[in-house]
Simulated scan of single mutants.
Amino acid sequence: MDITIKTLSGGEAGSVTLNDAIFGLEPREDILQRMVRYQLAKRQQGTHQTLGRAEIARTGAKLYKQKGTGRARHGSARAPQFRGGGKAHGPVSRSHAHDLPKKVRALALRHALSAKAKSGAILVIDDLTSAEGKTKATLSQFTGLGLTNALIIGGAEVNENFARSARNIPNIDVLPIQGINVYDILRRQTLVLSKAAVDALEERFK
Rank of each mutant, 00 (worst) to 15 (best):
G46R: 02
L40Y: 09
E26Q: 13
T17E: 15
A41M: 02
G46E: 06
H48Q: 13
G52D: 14
M35N: 06
Y38Q: 10
Y38F: 12
G52L: 03
Q44C: 04
E29Y: 07
I22Q: 07
D30I: 06
V36M: 10
L18R: 06
I22T: 04
F23N: 09
L51K: 15
Q44P: 00
I22L: 11
P27R: 04
D20C: 04
R37A: 14
A21T: 13
R34P: 01
I22A: 04
R43W: 04
Y38L: 00
Q39S: 07
L51S: 10
K42V: 04
Q33E: 08
F23S: 09
L51R: 15
G24F: 09
Q45G: 05
Q33Y: 13
L40P: 01
L18A: 09
Y38W: 12
G46K: 01
A21E: 15
F23C: 09
K42M: 10
K42C: 08
G24V: 08
A41W: 03
T50Y: 00
L32T: 07
Q33G: 03
G24D: 08
Q45R: 12
D20E: 15
L25A: 08
K42H: 11
D30S: 13
G24H: 10
R43T: 14
R37C: 07
P27H: 08
T17L: 09
T47A: 07
Q45P: 00
R34Q: 15
Y38G: 03
Q33K: 08
D30P: 03
P27M: 03
Q49W: 01
Q39N: 06
L40V: 13
G52Y: 03
D20H: 14
L18V: 08
G52T: 11
T47K: 08
H48I: 03
Q33S: 09
I22W: 04
A21W: 04
P27I: 10
T47M: 01
P27V: 05
L40K: 12
E29G: 10
R37M: 12
Y38E: 04
A21R: 15
L40Q: 13
I31T: 12
Y38I: 02
